[in-house]
């Protein structure tokens, strides 16, 4: 469903990504791990072209992402969840969720509200629809951000360190929701530092370091039988 071909990204003279090749199939739950600054977030941001790749290609269902009309249609099918939630502070929870489907003419306002309320039920925030983001806790905000992406019925969801800005207690509620989504068969790519979560959740794990994919495999292979010295070092550095 998703193909990344020879992707490179530089910021000025610094090469952040070096020739990344990657394929993601339907219903996969891919987790990307690696030390801070290894380029894993940048890779995720290049996948939906929020960050423009310097070289290489990203294909979604065979269609290359480029600076054209297709890009916007593809992004609708590719939800993204950010570390800092990025909810729209001037809109209520309900308005945050229905903004995209209504303004993109995908649903009527009534349909969107109905669907948003179903999603709110699913994320256990049905009583918060009239609240503004600043009145919510971090974990609640992140769940709303996930609902905002889900209302567009994405085929692929990208999570960029979704729990890094949260307290341990709130991490749990977000991770549980993500597990639920994974079980429902949604294709997901998750960048995270939560190793316990990665172990249980992932169908495949990629280890990145210094802008390259060093190793990939099942959680079993990655955590029990690391091959490269870099991965061993990384795993040893974790508590």
């Amino acid at each position: 469903m998703l193909v990344v071909k020879n992707l490179e990204k530089s910021f000025g003279k610094t090469k952040v990504l070096k020739k990344i090749n990657l394929e993601v199939n339907e219903k996969e739950r891919l987790v990307i791990i690696g030390p801070s600054g290894c380029g894993k977030s940048t890779l995720l941001r290049c996948i939906n072209h929020i960050e423009k790749p310097t070289k290489g290609k990203v294909l979604f269902e065979g269609i290359p992402l480029d600076d054209n009309e297709e890009l916007y249609k593809i992004r609708i099918k590719m939800g993204m969840v950010f570390q800092q939630f990025n909810l729209f502070p001037h809109l209520t929870v309900l308005e945050n969720i229905i903004l995209a489907p209504v303004k993109l003419n995908l649903l009527t306002k009534e349909e969107a509200i109905k669907k948003a309320r179903e999603l709110l039920l699913k994320i256990h925030l049905e009583d918060k629809e009239a609240n503004y983001p600043k009145e919510l806790s971090g974990g609640q905000m992140q769940r709303v951000a996930i609902a905002r992406a889900l209302i567009l019925e994405p085929k692929l969801m990208l999570f960029d360190e979704p729990t890094s800005a949260l307290d341990p207690q709130m991490k749990k509620e977000v991770l549980e929701l993500m597990e639920e989504l994974g079980k429902s068969g949604l294709t997901m790519i998750v960048v995270t530092h939560e190793m316990a979560f990665a172990k249980n959740f992932a169908s495949r794990i990629i280890f990145m370091d210094d802008g390259e994919i060093i190793e990939e495999g099942t959680p079993q292979e990655i955590f029990k039988n690391p091959k490269s010295s870099k991965l061993k070092e990384f795993l040893d550095s974790l508590i």
């Binding site: 993204m80 800092q84 990025n86 995209a100 567009l152």
Partner: peptide, 14 residues
């Protein structure tokens, strides 16, 4: 905040 632009782009907005 730039994140607002990114969030807008991520939901398919021009």
């Amino acid at each position: 905040d730039k994140g607002q632009i990114e969030a807008g782009a991520s939901i398919g907005f021009k």
